Simulated assay, not measured.
Amino acid sequence: MLPLWVWLQCRINSDAWHLGSENIRVGRDLRRSSSPTCCSKQDQSPIFTRPRRKSKSRVAADRFIGLTVEQKNELAQRELDETKEEIQQTKGDSERIIQNYQAVIEEAAIRWADIKKATCNFNKDIIQTISKKKGSVIASEKVLRYLEEKNHYRDAMKEKLRLKNDSLKVQKKKLQLQLKQKAEMGEALHEVDFQQLKIENAQFLEKIDERNQDLLQLKLTVGNTLQILNSYKVSQASGTCILFLLISCRLQNATTASARLMKDISQRKEALEKMERETILVEEERAKAESVTMQLRQQLSDYRVPPVVKYVNQKMAVYDLENNIKIWERKVEIAEVQSFKAGPGY
């Protein structure tokens, strides 16, 4: 027994082959119908191979052999008219057949595109998965799910087409009812007395004239009202101009004051920044002074008064040194005087 996916693939291929053959056959029939003179008698469509019926004028011509020229002309004219009618009928039938074939070709093309799309999707979603996982339960479930989805899609499409068909039927009934009502109204209008309609028309024309007079009077009133309104608008516009000038002056003054205030604010900001910088410097100097003060206080706290004897000895030593300095200064002065007296050669 063949696997399910192989059977589905064969079924899709057979449907595609039948659709292709049907498309080729329809195209061949369309070509035959479009060029009947170029085909043989065996290949022609039945609409072109049916025997031409014998006209009544030709039968009459066979019965009555001795005919005048006028009668022959009349018979020829009838034959020509019948031939034209047959040509028109044949042309209409041919066009109808061509349209049917074109519709069949379009339907076949749409079906062929759908089959190709379904085949591609089936190969992509099912065949590749089954070829990778042969004999797996998941692949079989996937195939069944695919078929169920297709069935659901067809059911949904069927329901959609049914609803559309119902709506078209309802619309058709409405249109038929409207046509029937229009036909009944037309018949009723034919039964109306036209003299009465003329009288009513004259009355309506009189009413229209009265309404036109009223409309003219209303137009005059509207014109006067517009003139008064324009005068009010002019006065209001002058008042608006004065108000605008006042507002402009106030705005200019406010702008000047704002500029002045902005300048003052900028100057105050600069002064504030300068004061902040000076404050920072003063804080630094204060910190330095505090550190020096702390050092001095530390030294003051560490200071010890020397003994009195040591102080006396120090004072005596200082006194002796001062005396020695004076003695040496005196000796230097004496030496300078002697050297000056001795002269430069000394």
Rank of each mutant, 00 (worst) to 15 (best):
L4K: 06
V6R: 14
W7C: 09
Q9D: 08
N13R: 11
N23Q: 04
R25C: 03
V26W: 01
G27K: 06
C39T: 08
S45F: 00
P46N: 00
T49S: 12
R50W: 03
P51K: 08
R53F: 02
S55L: 00
A61M: 11
D62I: 08
R63W: 13
T68Q: 07
K72I: 02
N73V: 01
A76D: 14
L80C: 08
T83P: 01
Q88F: 06
G92N: 14
D93R: 08
I98A: 04
Y101I: 02
V104D: 09
E106G: 04
N121W: 00
K124L: 00
K133V: 06
I138Q: 14
A139H: 00
A139E: 03
A139D: 02
R154Y: 08
R162V: 00
R162F: 02
N165P: 00
D166W: 09
V170E: 15
Q181R: 15
G186W: 04
L189F: 06
D193G: 00
D193Y: 06
L197Q: 13
K198A: 12
A202N: 10
E206G: 06
D209E: 15
E210P: 02
Q213R: 12
L216I: 07
K219R: 11
L220D: 13
T221L: 11
N224G: 07
N230S: 03
K233W: 07
G239D: 10
T240W: 01
C241Q: 13
I242M: 03
L246D: 10
L246K: 09
T256I: 11
E276S: 14
E278N: 15
V282I: 14
E284S: 14
M294R: 12
L296M: 12
L296T: 07
Q298C: 09
Q298R: 12
Q299R: 15
R304G: 03
N313S: 05
Y319R: 12
N324H: 05
K326L: 01
I327G: 00
E329H: 04
K331G: 04
Q338C: 09
G343E: 02
